[in-house]
């Protein structure tokens, strides 16, 4: 089990790195866009779409890493008032809800990606990039997010991790 949890963690970190790289790429390309458009007065052809795709990619690929580092904001009012057992139960329940959502998006997203791949879909611009490339980010990211949720639940059940990242004695009012 440790191997599974560790493997998922590493995958999430790897995707997080990819997400940061995409973010950096979009900063660079948007500056290139500004130079081409306003500096050289030339036509900007591919930059808008590229940057939009990187942003989509960064969001979906970054999702698992942000979950790993507890960065998805939530309402922790109820958990704070509960005892440890209640917290574990609630954390499992909320993880199951999130997991269902992520699995649905990953699964249907994969079918949609397949459609784009088989149908050879392209962007409706002069650049006309193949759409399967940005579309793959959604099933990939949401799929890994699902795995990260499973790993988190395993850590929770086996006591490796505390629910909602709260310490047992932590009871703020």
């Amino acid at each position: 089990m440790n191997i599974f949890i560790e493997a998922v963690r590493r995958l999430s970190v790897a995707c997080g790195v990819a997400s940061v790289l995409l973010l950096i790429a979009s900063v660079v390309v948007v500056c290139h866009l500004v130079i081409v458009r306003y500096g050289l007065g030339a036509s900007a052809i591919w930059q808008h779409e590229f940057v939009t795709f990187s942003l989509i990619g960064a969001t979906f690929l970054g999702g698992p890493y942000v979950l790993l580092t507890k960065g998805h904001v939530n309402v922790d009012l109820l958990p704070i008032y509960l005892g440890h057992r209640g917290r574990v139960a609630l954390a499992l329940l909320s993880s199951v809800l999130s997991l269902i959502f992520c699995v649905i998006i990953a699964w249907r997203g994969l079918l949609w990606w397949e459609e784009a791949w088989v149908g050879n879909w392209h962007g409706e611009t002069v650049w006309a990039p193949p759409l399967w490339i940005p579309y793959i980010a959604m099933p990939l990211g949401m799929g890994l997010l699902s795995l990260q949720y499973v790993a988190d639940m395993l850590s929770l059940i086996t006591g490796r991790d505390m629910p909602f990242g709260l310490k047992p004695e932590e009871r703020q009012s």
């Binding site: 030339a42 900007a44 052809i45 409706e124 611009t125």
Partner: peptide
């Protein structure tokens, strides 16, 4: 002239006519 065109086909024609495009 720097023009905004509706759709790639118009962009291609305008570029061929010597305009530059801002989508």
């Amino acid at each position: 002239q720097v023009l905004r065109a509706a759709g790639p086909a118009f962009e291609q024609m305008l570029v061929a006519a010597g305009a530059s495009i801002n989508a």
